[in-house]
Nucleic acid binder design. Structure first.
Lengths: 333, 333
DNA sequence: ATGGCGAGTGAATAGCTATGCACACATTCG
DNA sequence: CGAATGTGTGCATAGCTATTCACTCGCCAT
C-alpha cells in the first residue's frame, strides 16, 4: 500500500485549501502576487499535509539544478578535507548544493560524466590530481563549466586554479639555503600530479639559480608511508642530505618520524625540512613544520568566481600565491 | 545567443536519426525492444549531438532520485574523512550519488530539510553529533528514511547505528587498570555528543565496577586544542593522573603533545593513554596510541542495510562493536 | 487462405511546478 | 458616471523521458 505513496503535490494542497494549483505555487514564490489571506490559508494546508515544493520541474525547465559536482580522488589527505570544507561553505553561501563524487581513477570519471550530465549539474569542480581530458571534453560539449584544482588541463569551458607551485619550489630552495642547507633532498609526490612536477621543477631551478648542486630525490606519493620510505632511502647512503623539501606535509611527517626514530636525527637540529599544504598538524609539537600554505579559501574564492563566468567559453587559468609559514623545522640554533 | 541554449533532448536525437522520441528512449534503455540497426543509428546520432539522457523526468515520475544526502558538521576530524570515504564507496557500489551537506548547527539543518526534500533525496545520513529531532520528524513525514551515526534520535522512519560506546568505556577502564593505572582521568568530548556521554558513562561505570576511584575530568571538545587544554588542566594540580581515557584520538594527540612538551612526561612511561577512533595518525611514531577502532566499514555497511529497509516504519537501532587496538601508549616497561 | 503471433515502431500520457495570459472585481480619478 | 488602473485568481502550457497502448508487417501454423 505504501508502494505507490507519493509526497503531497501542489495540487493536493490546492484541493485542501480550495484554491487552484497556481495559487499554491504563488504562495511559495517570494514576490508573487497573492492575497495575504489566501496565502495564509494555503500555508496552513501545506503545513498540515507536510508539503514541500518539488524542485525538479523547475530544474527541468530552467536547466539549472543548483547542484555543483565536486570530484575527488580520496579523503586520506587532510588537505582535501580543508578544500571540501571551504567549498562547502562557499557553495552554501551561494545557495548551491554539493554532489560529492569520489573516483578511483580518471578512467572511471568518464563513466561518471553520464551521471553528472544526467542530473544536469551546473558545474564540475575537480580536485583530482589528474583529470581526464576526455571527460572534460564531454562536459564542455554539454556546456557544463569545469574548474580543476592544481591541474593543467586545457580546452573550452575549462578553467583551472592552481598554486604557484613552481615559485614555491624556488622559494623553498632559497629558504633552505639561507638557513644553512648544503646538501639538498627532494621528497617527491606522485609523478602524474602536475603540482608535484611543478614543485620539483621550481625547486631544481631555484637550486641551479643559486649555483647549488641538484637535490637527491626519493619518494613518489603524497602519503605518510611514502615519506617514511623516502627518508630511509635518502639517509641509508653515505652522503646524507641536510635540507629537505617535501612535496606535501603528509610525506614530511613520515620523513621527520623516520629520521627521529630510525636515525636519531632531528629537525631542524640535523636536517632542515620544508613541507607543503600547511595542515593543522604542521603546527603540532612533534613537527612544527615550515610549510607553504595554499590558502584554500582563496583557491575556492577564485574557483567560485570562475564558475560564475557563464559566458566565457575560453580557457582561463589562474594562480593563487601560496604563503610560506616558517616554523621550527627550518630554524637552526 | 547562448542564453537560451539547451542540451540536446531525445527529440533532437530522434529528428536527427529519423525516428520517434520513444525509439531514442528505447535505444538507451537496456532490455527494451528495439531493432539492432535502429539502435545503432540512434546511438550514432546521439554521439554526434552529445546527447545524454536527462534523469530528471524519470525522477519526477518515480520519486526516486538516486541521491542520498550525507549531513556532516565539519571535516576537521579525520574520522569524518574515513566515514565519508566509506560511504562514498558504498553508495557508488549501490549506484547512488552523494549529496554532501555541511551544517553549522542543528538549527540550520531544519532550513536544509526543504532543500533535501525538494530534490527528493532517497535518504538522509546524518553524521552530526547532534541531529535535530524536528528535522528528523519533517523527513519522516515525507517518508524519507534517515540514518543517524552515533546519535540517539528516535521516531518513525529513523534508524541509527552507533558504536558500543558504553562498553568501550568499560573496556578502557579495565585495560588501564590492568596496565597499572591507579589515578584515572577522562578527557571529555563535547557535552552534547551522545557518543561522548556514553563513553564517559561506560568509563565511570567500569571504574566503579572495579572498585576504583572515579576519574578526574577535563576537556570538552573533539579537537586537538581541547586535548591540549585538558592536559594542562589535569596536570597542573598536585594529584596528577597516571591513566587517561580520551573521548577521541584528536584530543589524545593534544594531550600527549602537551605532556611531553610542557610537563616532560611521556606515554606510556609516565601516563597511560587510550583514545578513540583509531585514526591513521594513531599509528605514527610520536603517538603509537592505543585506540578503539570504530570499524567504519561495518558502520557504513549497516547503515546501507538500514537504508534499504524500505518498509520498516519502525525505529531501528543497531550497534557495531568497536575493536581495541593496543599500541605503545598503554604498554609500560 | 486466414487467424494468430511476435517484433518493431509511433502516438499519447504521466509526473509537478512556475509563469504568461486572460478574466473578474474593486478602487480611483477625471 | 465612465474609464482606467490595479489586484487577485484560474487556465493552460512548457520542460523531457519512460512507458503503455495501439498499430503495422512479416511469418508460421492450421
Amino acid at each position: 500500500m505504501s508502494g505507490n505513496w507519493r509526497p503531497p503535490s501542489s495540487t493536493d494542497v490546492a484541493r485542501a485549501a480550495g484554491v487552484s494549483q497556481s495559487a499554491v505555487s504563488r504562495a511559495f514564490t517570494p514576490g508573487a502576487r497573492i492575497a495575504e489571506a489566501t496565502r495564509a490559508r494555503i500555508l496552513e494546508a501545506a503545513q498540515a499535509l507536510g508539503y514541500r515544493p518539488n524542485l525538479l520541474p523547475k530544474i527541468l525547465q530552467t536547466n539549472r539544478s543548483g547542484i555543483v559536482a565536486v570530484v575527488v580522488g580520496g579523503f586520506y589527505n587532510p588537505y582535501f578535507a580543508m578544500t571540501l570544507e571551504a567549498f562547502s561553505k562557499a557553495l552554501t553561501a551561494a545557495g548551491l548544493q554539493m554532489m560529492l563524487v569520489r573516483v578511483e581513477s580518471d578512467r572511471i570519471l568518464d563513466g561518471v560524466v553520464d551521471q553528472l550530465a544526467g542530473y544536469r549539474v551546473d558545474a564540475v569542480v575537480s580536485a583530482l590530481a589528474l583529470t581526464s581530458q576526455a571527460a572534460a571534453d564531454q562536459l564542455s560539449k554539454l556546456r557544463i563549466p569545469i574548474v580543476t584544482l592544481n591541474s593543467d588541463l586545457a580546452g573550452d569551458w575549462i578553467r583551472s586554479v592552481s598554486s604557484d607551485n613552481f615559485a614555491a619550489g624556488e622559494a623553498a630552495a632559497r629558504l633552505l639555503r639561507e638557513r644553512g642547507g648544503t646538501r639538498f633532498g627532494f621528497v617527491a609526490g606522485p609523478a602524474d600530479s602536475p603540482a608535484q612536477v611543478a614543485r620539483e621543477a621550481g625547486f631544481a631551478h631555484g637550486l641551479a639559480t643559486l649555483g647549488l648542486p641538484p637535490a637527491t630525490r626519493a619518494g613518489g606519493g603524497y602519503d605518510y608511508a611514502s615519506g617514511e620510505q623516502a627518508a630511509r632511502d635518502l639517509f641509508s647512503g653515505a652522503e646524507r642530505p641536510d635540507a629537505l623539501f617535501c612535496a606535501n606535509d603528509l610525506a614530511a611527517f613520515g620523513v621527520i618520524d623516520v629520521l627521529r626514530e630510525d636515525f636519531g636525527l632531528s629537525a631542524p637540529g640535523d636536517v632542515l625540512v620544508v613541507g607543503f599544504d600547511n595542515l593543522d598538524m604542521a603546527a603540532w609539537a612533534p613537527y612544527r613544520l615550515t610549510s607553504f600554505d595554499q590558502d584554500v579559501d582563496a583557491h575556492v574564492a577564485v574557483a567560485m568566481e570562475l564558475l560564475d563566468l557563464e559566458a566565457g567559453a575560453t580557457c582561463v587559468a589562474r594562480t593563487v600565491p601560496s604563503r610560506l609559514v616558517e616554523r621550527e623545522s627550518t630554524r637552526r640554533g
